[in-house]
Computed example of a mutant assay.
Amino acid sequence: MYKIMTAGPTQVRENVRMARSLETTNPDLDLEFYDFYKQTCDDLKGLLHSSGSAYILGGEGILGLEAACASLTEPGDRVLVIDNGIFGKGFADFVTLYGGQPVLYTCDYKRPVDCGKLREFLEEDSDFKYATLVHCDTPSGVLNDVKALGCLLDEFHILSVVDSVAGMFGEYLNVDESRIDILCGGSQKALSAPPGLTLLWVSDRAIEAMENRSTPIASFYANILTFKNYYKDKWFPYTMPISDIQGLAAAVDNVKADQEIFRRHEKIAAATRQAVTEAGLSLYLKSGYSNTVTVVQVPEGVTDEAILSIMRDKYQVMISGCFDILAGKVIRIGHMGENANIPDMAQTLDAMDKTLQELGVPLKCRMKDRFLELLS
C-alpha cells in the first residue's frame, strides 16, 4: 500500500471510511436525510464564514467550476478570467462552453496576482458580469490573496467565482469578508474525504443574478438553482450519494475539532520548503507559496517519471507530477489535510533523499533530517 502524498486526493482518516460504510436510507424519501444534509451544509457555512447558501453536489470538484459558469453565463456575457496558473486559465473553457466571452487577464505564473496592477486594468475596463480566479492553483502551488482580489472585484461591481479546491481548510478563508459570490471546493483535498463531491458556497446576489437571467441555464446537472429550495420542498434534483455525504460529514467534524489546522499546515509547509531549498533543489514559484502543496523543479539530468516511479515502486511513497505547460518540469508534494503531519512528511522526504541519491543528484543535506530539525 502506497503512502499517498499527492497534491490531492489525500489520505482519509478511519472514521471517514467507517462513516461511508454505515447503513443507508433512501435519500430522496427519508426526511431525516434532508436534515442531515442541511446540517452538513450549515457546518460548511460556519467553517468558511459564509452567510449565503452552501450545497453539496454529487460529482468531483470540477463540477463546481462548471456549475458556477453554467449558472451565471449567458450568451455574449463578458467574463474576466484571472489567469496566473493552469487552472485559472482553464475557467475560459467553461465560459466559452456556455456562450460567454472570456477575457483573459494573464500574469506571471510564478507569483500571485498583483492586486494593484489588476486595479489599473479594471480602471480601464470593468465591463464584466463576473470574474473567475483560483485561490491555490494546484499545478504550481501559487496562492492568491482572494480576500483582496474579491473585495477589489466587488468594488467594481463584478461578481466573483473562486476555485479553492486545493486551498480551503488548509488556508484560512472567510467568504463574507472576501466578498466571494460562488466559492468552489472539493471533498478530496485538505478536507480529506474521498473524491466524488463538489462543495459550493453561494451568495444571495449570485442567486439573484441566476434568477434574473434572460435565458435559461443551459444545463440541468450543473444548474445551481435546482438546489435552492431542496429543504423547503424536500426534493433533490437527483439522488444524493448518501454514503459519500456521510463520509464528508465525518471529515467536516474532524476539521471542526482541529483547532490548530491552519498553524499545522503553515509549519509543515514552511519546513518542507526550507528543507528542499537547503538541499539545493529549486522551487517552481518565486513567491506566493501555498501551505497545501510544494512544487519542486525537476533537477537537471533526471526526469520526473524516474523520480516518481522510484519513490512509488521502491519506497511506496506516491507524490504528483504535473501536466499542461508544467508536464515533466516539476514534481508536487501534497501536505494538506491528513497528509499534513510530521511522520508522513519525514517519510516522504526520506524517500526523495534516497531516490535522488540513487539517480545521482547531489544534495547539500538530507531533506528529512533538516525538516525534522526545523520542527524540533
Rank of each mutant, 00 (worst) to 15 (best):
M1N: 13
M5I: 08
T10I: 04
Q11T: 11
E14A: 12
V16K: 08
F33M: 09
Y34N: 04
D35H: 13
D42E: 15
L47F: 07
A54R: 00
Y55L: 10
G58C: 10
L65A: 09
E74T: 08
P75H: 09
P102Y: 08
Y109K: 00
K110W: 08
G116Y: 05
F128Q: 03
T138C: 15
L143Y: 14
A148N: 11
A148H: 04
L159P: 01
S160R: 08
G167A: 11
M168G: 07
M168L: 14
N174V: 00
V175A: 07
A190Q: 10
A190L: 09
L191E: 07
T198K: 00
W201S: 03
S203M: 06
M210I: 10
I217G: 00
A218R: 14
S219A: 14
F220D: 15
F220M: 14
N223M: 07
I224K: 04
T226W: 12
T239F: 09
A249D: 15
A250M: 07
V255G: 07
I261K: 13
I261T: 13
R264G: 09
A279W: 04
S290F: 02
Q297W: 02
E305N: 13
D313F: 10
V317S: 01
C322T: 07
G334D: 02
N341G: 09
M345N: 07
A346P: 03
L349V: 03
M352E: 00
M352L: 15
E358M: 12
K364M: 13
K368E: 15
K368C: 15
R370D: 03
L374S: 05
L374W: 03
